[in-house]
Design a protein around this nucleic acid. Structure first.
Length: 470
DNA sequence: ATGTCC
């Protein structure tokens, strides 16, 4: 007969809420159950956690059961004893810390299903590249700080030869009509109907944020955001895009909802943490009940931030297309940090995509590679196991700090020159070498999306990189 | 991601 004992880690693994119940339960089990098998005790502990009321008169476990019931009354949320189903795509390319984060998210009591995309890397709460479906709950950090961060591609009627022949015009258009950097605002403000939205008058938060949003309309921010001219190659006729096979000049942008979305995310994450107390290590996953005023308020603010992000892209594209005198032939755009109401196995769920491209059957999207690697125009296949999602890019392999310490400016210049790419701004932390191989990432998700076109960057503008690390 | 704590 072996002597068996449990530890606090065992209880954490089982999803027990941290607190006095730990000490009481460890003592009770080690005193009264040490002669039982590990499997027997674990089974008992699972039953106790899922239904403490059934143990309230149990000789050995009544105290623990009472504590568990009072914890529930005190709104500390208990995790699921078993995770809901989730599928990982391209596991061999994914950081273990991102795996750990999706493993936590699928134990939330509101979780319905999850998925992890092949470009995944760690984030706050849900990993970047993480997808989570929940029941009647929205997780502000499941959407992310940059609410509505999205891609927008305009395919134009300009001759491809003009890219080289009129290099100066294209480069100048980026310098004149885009604005990058944290806090960047246009001195002469742009206009767009999104600024007339009633939501800007309906909460104190959005009233406060309106002026900054008006100033930042049509700016791009910093980090991995970009605006670039390049070449779209279509190999087969695409009726949905109304495009014949061939090559086209195109404009591609990547940016989000700027200060507006960041402040909305911060505000409602703080609120969610107050209303939804989760165990240690899970707190960034705090959620709002969709059937409360707070949940509905976040949803409205998130929707506005998403539409604002779209408006920013449209302002940028309008100005750059005007600068070249082009005509728009086709446009593809998609959010990749957002939450949607969708059906999963017949149930309405809230699908959070934090750095993941919507890929419902026939839905078009853009998955960028890097400055020197192609991006892909894709059409979703509607695979339920991925919650109808795909990656939102190649994903980083080097952190910003490591990149700034390791990559030499001359190496980066050479890679750009070898690919015929002109870069305005941009830092070592955005060098092509910091990204995974987009072709490997695409093959890891070939069952999720069909590629219908490629985009190759030529003239790229980004925010100036930060200072190099020592 | 954001002028890095409303």
């Amino acid at each position: 007969m072996s002597i068996f004992s449990i530890t606090g880690n065992d209880l954490l693994e089982l999803g027990y809420p941290e607190g006095p119940v730990f000490k009481v339960l460890i003592e009770a089990v080690n005193q009264h159950y040490s002669a039982h098998s590990s499997a027997e005790v674990m089974g008992l502990l699972k039953r106790l956690l899922s239904d403490p009321a059934a143990f309230i008169e149990d000789v050995q476990l009544s105290e623990a059961a009472a504590l568990l019931l009072s914890v529930k009354d005190n709104k500390t949320v208990s995790l699921l004893p078993e995770p809901v189903p989730y599928k990982i795509y391209g596991e061999e390319y994914i950081d273990p810390n991102a795996m750990k984060q999706i493993n936590q998210a699928v134990k939330l009591p509101v979780a319905v299903a999850g998925a992890l995309m092949p470009d995944a890397h760690p984030g706050y709460g849900l990993p970047i590249g993480g997808v989570l479906a929940t029941n009647q709950a929205v997780i502000p950090y499941g959407v992310g700080v940059d609410i509505g961060c999205r891609m927008c591609l305009s395919i134009l009627d300009l001759p491809v030869a003009s890219l080289k022949a009129s290099q100066e015009t294209y480069v100048k258009s980026l310098n004149v009509h885009t604005k990058f950097g944290a806090g960047a605002e246009w001195r002469k403000r742009e206009d767009h109907e999104v600024l007339a939205r009633p939501e800007f008058k309906e909460t104190q938060l959005l009233r406060q944020l309106f002026d900054k949003a008006a100033g930042q309309l049509g700016t791009s921010g910093s980090g991995n955001h970009f605006v670039e001219w390049g070449v779209v190659t279509i190999t087969e006729a695409q009726p949905e895009l109304n495009l014949a096979p061939g090559q086209y000049v195109a404009l591609l942008s990547h940016s989000g909802s700027r200060g507006l979305g960041a402040q909305v995310a911060g505000h409602y994450t703080r609120l969610a943490k107050e209303l939804c107390e989760l165990p240690e290590g899970y707190k960034h996953l705090a959620y709002l009940d969709m059937n409360t005023a707070e949940g509905q308020e976040y949803w409205a603010a998130m929707t506005l931030a998403g539409d604002y992000a779209s408006a920013c892209h449209h302002v940028i594209h309008r100005k750059l297309i005007n600068a070249t005198g082009a005509t728009l032939l086709a446009r593809v755009e998609n959010h990749h940090n957002f939450a949607w109401k969708e059906l999963y196995e017949g149930q309405e769920v809230i699908v959070h995509r934090k750095g993941a491209t919507p890929a419902a059957e026939g839905t078009q999207g853009i998955i960028p590679g890097s400055m020197t690697a192609p991006g892909f125009i894709v059409k979703g296949k509607g695979v339920a196991a991925s919650l109808q999602s795909a990656s939102h890019g190649a994903g980083r392999v080097l952190s910003r700090n490591v990149a700034k310490a390791q990559i030499k400016p001359d190496e980066m210049r050479k890679v750009l020159a070898d690919h015929g790419v002109v870069l305005l701004g941009g830092g070592l932390d955005e060098a092509p070498a910091v990204y995974k191989d987009i072709r490997k990432v695409m093959s890891a998700q070939s069952e999720l999306v069909e590629v219908i076109g490629e985009f190759t960057p030529k003239y790229v503008r980004m925010a100036d990189g930060g200072p190099a690390e020592d």
